[in-house]
Nucleic acid binder design. Structure first.
Lengths: 261, 261
DNA sequence: CCCAATGTCTCATTACACGGGACACCACCA
DNA sequence: TGGTGGTGTCCCGTGTAATGAGACATTGGG
């Protein structure tokens, strides 16, 4: 088992493709952030399930409140899912304890402040505080990104056990812009630097025109539990000026998370 | 089918107690907001499933990322659920378009601003903006409450089709404080008044010491899609002073939601 | 008018979930 | 030290409930 990795692995493995529950979640996972509602036929096509199976399952999920059906028969994700998702967040408390820190950070820097954790070798944004007026940024609460192309991802990675880094590298280093790190050696060197300075930067590595500065959050026994960042348009953000604020915010959240300094 | 009710009802009804998918979500639904992690035995006890079934299912869900297992074997809701839940929210766009309105409302009134919708005859909070310093309020994003004891609930109810009101009444009017409306006639009279004024008030009907003022949000074809409210400690909030702000905020959100005025 | 795509439902078949039960721990107590 | 109740974990024979091919009706476009 990976130390520092929260999830255990159950001994009995069940093929997600043939279990009812696995299929149900496969059906839910076909929804993309850009599409609003999907027809039953579209659900079947995307999930690869037979048409009648997808149809029946969608009906079942609708009865449970997991899906909703519009008056013209199309499906979208239901509020019951939202409720469960919020509960998942609430259970780990990180967002609640970080909320005011995040707001202060956004206020002080007049940029968007992000809170993220790592889940299954991906970065998940738990909260985003945007300054007003909000800039056009791609990031979305609940959204997932590869860790190697984000400041928060690299900040978490730098303080994760080596097995996690290996796993991330094994999955491949995606190139989202010409600045993305796609070379293992360069990534490892950068992680060393981040470990030394406690700061991670993203110079248009995820999207052209946006830069960011991130710092890790630690919990009990000095395990990294997440990261905060400030990001904005490359032309409007001075990374050197926000670095200290990011770092002190991360330290503050770490303290309330129970990290002994 | 209820007009104004978003969900359709599938013809084929499936018993949630015997379907795999239904059981899986029953297992997920045993998590309460107060508990962090649950043991497998606790899951079985709360869900009423046999111990081995609950255990196997929890393992399956863990494999899917729907549940997570701590190092000592206990379970909690996984981030995959959070991701899906955020997507559910994103799909309906209401939160995004209401966000800046909500922030302005909270700023102007220096109180907590709430955005809520109705789902399955219950109020679900989509977003809450708290002023700093945040007051101690019970409300939680993703939380559910009976509509009759909240300002937002009554505001939505007042403009919902009569079938929805009947359904809510049929489910019973809970008494959370001595001020809660538990009498059908009184509720109907209040809804008439809300419909006339466009404003709903909560005078310590949900919790002693908190009051609130709410107004409905309309979408296309003048259907009510949700409500906004401002709420705070009874001693620190002047409902008459915030009413106009609440109403204009609701109107603004309605406009961007596509309501023709 | 045709054809392709879709919504909806039925039903015989069988794969798969089910859950009783077994076993090993652990903690507490006498 | 042995007993007892609560666990985590897993096996496996059984039967039930999910499955998916297919039928049929609509819709809409060309």
């Amino acid at each position: 088992m990976l130390p520092g990795c929260y999830c255990r692995v159950m001994v009995t493995q069940i093929d997600p493709a043939v279990s009812s529950v696995g299929r149900a979640f496969a059906l839910l996972s076909v929804f993309q952030s850009r599409d609003r509602e999907l027809t039953a036929a579209e659900l079947a096509r995307r999930s690869g399930l037979p048409r009648s199976t997808a149809y029946r399952m969608a009906g079942e999920l609708t009865g449970l409140g997991i899906l909703e059906q519009t008056l013209d028969g199309r499906f979208r994700l239901g509020l019951k899912l939202f409720e469960l998702g919020q509960l998942a967040l609430y259970q780990r408390g990180l967002r609640e304890s970080a909320a005011c820190f995040l707001a202060d950070l956004s206020n002080a820097t007049r940029q968007a402040a992000h809170l993220a954790v790592m889940d299954n070798c991906e970065v998940v944004y738990l909260d985003i505080i945007r300054p007003s007026p909000p800039p056009r940024l791609r990031s979305r609460v609940g959204g997932r990104l590869p860790p190697t192309v984000t400041g928060v991802g690299k900040a978490i990675l730098a303080f994760s056990p080596p097995e996690v880094v290996d796993e991330v590298i094994a999955r491949g280093l995606p190139r989202l812009t010409t600045n993305s790190i796609t070379d293992e050696a360069r990534l490892r060197a950068e992680l060393v630097k981040i470990r030394r300075t406690g700061l991670a930067f993203d110079h248009q590595e995820q999207a052209v025109g946006t830069s960011c500065c991130a710092a890790p959050i630690f919990g009990a026994n000095h395990q990294v539990v997440g990261a905060v960042s400030v990001s904005g348009h490359t032309s409007s953000i001075r990374l050197d000026l926000v670095a200290a604020a990011v770092q002190s915010t991360a330290a503050g959240i770490s303290r309330v998370q129970g990290a002994q300094t």
